[in-house]
Each structure stands twice: as structure tokens, then as C-alpha cells.
Write a protein that binds this DNA or RNA. Structure first.
Lengths: 171, 171
DNA sequence: GACGATACGGAACGCACGCCCCGGTTGGCA
DNA sequence: TGCCAACCGGGGCGTGCGTTCCGTATCGTC
């Protein structure tokens, strides 16, 4: 690969990282190209489609986060809650986090599996309400992550969801 | 107004009711026109803009729901929760409910006011966590309502939010 | 330093959608 | 029944965006 090609590829990735993070998947591809200082055609030389570029930017980050779910924790509930917190933290700063769930089916599946595993353990331990499914949780989190970009207080919103997930002792 | 004009206006409204409810605000206006059996031009004869048509379809329904918040309830928390439940029920069936919050600023303001009033009373009664603002609640509900259209279990999702809203007694 | 392959940029295409225009039609009144 | 205003349909315009094409510039090698 030619030197300038490699340089441009990196400039595109850099611009994409910044703009996907700040504006989400909906940012026009021409804007990414402009910010990278190249033409749209150049972007397509390196990535066959806008979605492929998005995936190149988000996949590693999201996958790393999912794998971090395997880290040790004090108990099952703590493990689940820590993971959800990490998702919220990430999504509060980078808008592409929530889009990744929608845009990249494979990522959604992986997230579903990871959440399912954590959820099941916490439910078996009697720490989390048992009527929630992994699908419910993925969907609920996606809704909550999107809410973070509309001015919602991240800590409060997360706390509401976490509290609500616990096995309820009705007052 | 001519008879056929009135008839067409009603056909347009009928089609808009159905399609906005099933597909949300994003449904193409041409599709509404087709379903009504008229041309797009006819739609614009009766409603100056797509948003005006959407408002004509949703405003009364949403306003009625907001006003129902004034109905009596056993206590402040019950009043708030009943209202949130009604929102969820409506949104689970009609997709335009959640869009109305975004598309029609006035409706969002009204909803914000109604929710703010109910929230404040419940908080003063010590029944709901005090770190939540009306803005948070509107945003959170919008996220949750959207989640309902992606396969989430309405009852479970609502229960999580309601439980999470209560003044927390950490286990 | 010249040549061929590689890569670049941006103009252009196709598509979808909101919205407008106009020739033809229809309704209701005289 | 005839006339005119109101109304209709759908083709068309402007815009935004993803994607492609191609003439030109640049890199790396001989």
C-alpha cells in the first residue's frame, strides 16, 4: 500500500472517530471526508460502505467493552451493574455507542449474549427481578443510552434503571 | 366547503391516523395520500405541511391524555404512576405517541408541565426520589416509549422505571 | 528522470422525500 | 342545464445523502 494511501486512511478513521462520536451514525459521509481533508471518493477507496467505516471505528471499542464483562466482581449483581454503568459512561460521551447496537447486527448479538449471561447469574442469585429478559434489557438500555444525548442526567437515569432492575420489595 | 373536499379531508385524516399510529411520523406523506386514495397535492390542500397533519392527528389525543392527569387518585405517587402507565399503554399500541413529544414542541411543553406537577407532589410526599427532574422524566419516558416499538415487554419495562423512580431503600 | 500503476478529488448519478404547480374535472348555484 | 369557482391528481422541483466514475495528480521503481 502506498504511503499517501495509508496516511489518508488514517486521516479518514480519525475524522470518523471524532464525528461518529459527536454526531452519531447519521453524520453525512461527505462531512467526514471534508474533516479528513479528502474527497468522498477517497473514503470509498478504503471502506466499501459507510456502514463498514462505522464498524471499523466502533467494533473494537464495543467488543473490548463486552469482553470486559468477564472481569471479576464481588457478586453477580455487581457484575451486571458495573457493566451497565460502563455502557452508560461510554454512551454519555460517545454518541456512536448507542448507534452501534442498531447499525451492526453482529455487535447487537454479542451484546445480547454478554448481557444475557450476566443477567442470568444475577437472577439466579435472586438479586434481579426474574421477569426481565436479555432482549428487554438490550432494548431498555438502547432507549436509555439515546436519552443521554437529549439532556438527561446520566447518573440519575442510570440509577433509576439499576434500582428498577433489583428484585422488588414493594413498599 | 365543498362536499367532496370534506370527504377527502376525512379520508386523509383516517389514513394518517392509521399510518402514523403504525409507522410513526417517518411514514412518507405519499404513502398516506395513496392509502387515502388521493394525490399528494390534495393532502397539501387541506394541511399546509406534513407536521400540521401529524399535529391534527395527535394533538387532541395527547392533550386529552395530559388533561386526564388531573383526575383524582389515592395519593401523589399513584397519580404519577397511573399517568405514566397510561402513556406506556398508549405508546405500546400507537407509534405516534412518542413521536409527538419530538415533533410538536408545544405538546412536549405541555407534557413537561403536567409531569412536572405530578412529580413535584410525589416528591414532596417523599414517595419518589428527589434527584429526578421533570426534564429527566420526559426524556426517560420518551426513550422507554421508543423501546416499546422494538419488541420490549411493555409491562416489564414500565415496572422497571416505576420501581426505579421510588424513593430508594437500598437493600 | 521517466514511466506505469496506484490513488485522489469532486462532479455526477440514483434515490427518497417534502412540497408545489397546473391542466383537467367536478360540485353546487342560478 | 350551464357556468364558474373550487378542487383534484400526479408529474415535477429542490434538497440531501450514499455511492460511483473518471480525468488528473502522485508515488515508487528502473
Amino acid at each position: 500500500m502506498r504511503a499517501d494511501a495509508a496516511r489518508n486512511r488514517e486521516k479518514v478513521l480519525e475524522a470518523a472517530r471524532e464525528l461518529f462520536a459527536s454526531k452519531g451514525f447519521e453524520v453525512p459521509l461527505d462531512e467526514i471526508a471534508a474533516q479528513a481533508g479528502v474527497g468522498p471518493g477517497t473514503v470509498y477507496r478504503h471502506f466499501p460502505t459507510k456502514q463498514a467505516l462505522f464498524q471499523a471505528v466502533t467494533e473494537a471499542r464495543v467488543t473490548a467493552m463486552i469482553e470486559s464483562a468477564a472481569e471479576p466482581a464481588t457478586d453477580a449483581k455487581a457484575a451486571l451493574f458495573a457493566f451497565l454503568s460502563r455502557m452508560a459512561e461510554e454512551a454519555a460521551v460517545k454518541r456512536d455507542m448507542s448507534d452501534a447496537i442498531t447499525v451492526t447486527p453482529q455487535l447487537r448479538k454479542n451484546l445480547h449474549a454478554a448481557l444475557g449471561s450476566l443477567l442470568e447469574k444475577a437472577q439466579q442469585a435472586g438479586q434481579v427481578r426474574t421477569d426481565v429478559t436479555a432482549t428487554d434489557l438490550v432494548i431498555l438500555m438502547k432507549g436509555m443510552l439515546q436519552s443521554l444525548h437529549e439532556g438527561g442526567n446520566p447518573e440519575v437515569l442510570l440509577q433509576i434503571v439499576l434500582t428498577g432492575l433489583q428484585s422488588s420489595r414493594k413498599p
